[in-house]
Design a protein around this nucleic acid. Sequence first.
DNA 1: CGACGCTTTGACACAACTCAACAACCGTGG
DNA 2: CCACGGTTGTTGAGTTGTGTCAAAGCGTCG
Lengths: 235, 235
Amino acid sequence: MTGMRIDTPFARKLSAFVNLSAAELDAVAELHADPVVVEKGTQLVDEGQTGQKAFVLNSGWACCYKDLANGNRQIISFPVAGDCFGLRGVLLRTADHSVVTLTSGVACAIASAELTRIITDFPRLGAAFFWAASRDESLVVEHLVSIGRRTALERTAHFFLELEECLRVVGLVKDHTFQCPLTQFVLADALGLTAIHVNRVLRQLREEKLLTLRQNEVTIHNGERLREISGFRGL
Amino acid sequence: MTGMRIDTPFARKLSAFVNLSAAELDAVAELHADPVVVEKGTQLVDEGQTGQKAFVLNSGWACCYKDLANGNRQIISFPVAGDCFGLRGVLLRTADHSVVTLTSGVACAIASAELTRIITDFPRLGAAFFWAASRDESLVVEHLVSIGRRTALERTAHFFLELEECLRVVGLVKDHTFQCPLTQFVLADALGLTAIHVNRVLRQLREEKLLTLRQNEVTIHNGERLREISGFRGL
DNA sequence: CGACGCTTTGACACAACTCAACAACCGTGG
DNA sequence: CCACGGTTGTTGAGTTGTGTCAAAGCGTCG
């Protein structure tokens, strides 16, 4: 059974930070005790609600977002397999953003009490959580920079390079190609653009043989050039 | 001496989350053992460098930012008295952003070892750090939403309302007025705009008697209307 | 087959940027 | 004291990237 302990994307991610003890791995395994299958379009966290749970995603895609009064939406991030989300909602008592699944998948809920118990009982594990959260925040910051100071083209290129890197870590990239269930409307809400303009940008990327998104599949033809355009520096 | 323990903006902020024990307050006080006066324009954190320290700001203003290859800059946040910054740089080993002071002030450096020791020795304190970091991240997310989905006017209005709230917490707002050392160039880098356009927006806000920024002093004339325009909801 | 969601394209409008010039302010040194 | 240069703020005219509106083409699924 010990072999099983580490066999979740999330545990693997944390292990990249510190070598967790058996007890710590057990604690992580406990979080995965009750995995549930979630349908596409499931609302996992609701902005403004209290008592929301955090989640670890074992498979599938989700998106963290905020709705605006004028009907617009801004997507913050796209949690994928091995990612944790909703932590702020737990720590701050009331969720500051919403989360919805974009595909069906498997998720494990983490109740507030469970989280604080882990942090206090296993400080090193708490630090690992902190580290993982920092990595995620780093992505959010880069996202902010993109939207603030990059053109639509640069921004889009940067986004897909980042996405590739995230998915590569969990083994979801094969030959510069990966599955990507994001529609142009969803991309627009993430990139701070219009779906129509996203379409134009994708066309340009396609025509210049840099990147193709077709039928939920992204292929990066010229990563070198994309990095030049977007100013993307790995991590 | 016990009375002194809590008498830093940072300790007061953490205490808002959990009532810290005497030992924990001592640990926080240790962080403030070596306050240093920093000049305006001091580079406290350098993006890409390893072994950077985190800081607690006792007074003055700073800004966290990232430089882009094309010479642009995006400001992430404006740490003020009581704020902590550079934590990600410590946890991720290499700083993912830079920090520079915008005014002279007083700051306390937190070395990496010191931080991890505190987290492991005082888990509850670690949780408090985590909580404070979450609050900051919440601001960054709101900032992201602003830049992605709000017009220049909405965005600027939102920014100043948020700023007012942050400064009010540390007692720096008096009669809807507060000191604000941000130039229009700095504002532009924060809001994802041009200094010239910031100027135009500020003019509009002034002419419509909503908000005035003159000689480093902001006065909010019509908070009600500003909230309507920007969709700002407190916290 | 029809209905629906997603993509694609074109013509036009507008918000924000660029360029250029000038005015106010501020600290410095003659 | 005033002259000075540098930084910051202000304004106008013209450009451009992105949004808006409208319509049609595709896939897929019931």
